[in-house]
Amino acid sequence: MIVELSFGVAAAVLLAYALVCAIRLGIGPTAADRAVALDTINTLVVAIMVLVGAAFDLMIILDVALVYALLSFVGTLYIARYLEEGLK
């Protein structure tokens, strides 16, 4: 089906963006820059998972995306708390 194919293409495009963000994850001068890059990648991964679930018609991946969204949020909060302590 052409619609499913378009979901797959969109997921591939977002994956390319996530790789672009990974550049900032690698070079980012401070730890905070890396954390921001990771947070951005997390958002993109949630969108990618939802798109892949629609493309391959796998409901389980949508469930994984929900759990991933919440866990990555908790992870971001913990990284932020860790940065606040002054460990760079």
Binding site: V50, L66, A80
Partner: peptide, 30 residues
């Protein structure tokens, strides 16, 4: 599919600004 995708949308809308706010505050305190 509609329920799950809509829930993922709501989570993103609620958690993304909160997470970035926490990161910005941490960066300033660091």
């Amino acid at each position: 599919m509609v329920i799950r995708a809509a829930l993922a949308l709501v989570f993103l809308l609620l958690t993304n600004p909160t997470g970035s706010h926490a990161l910005a505050r941490a960066a300033h305190r660091a």
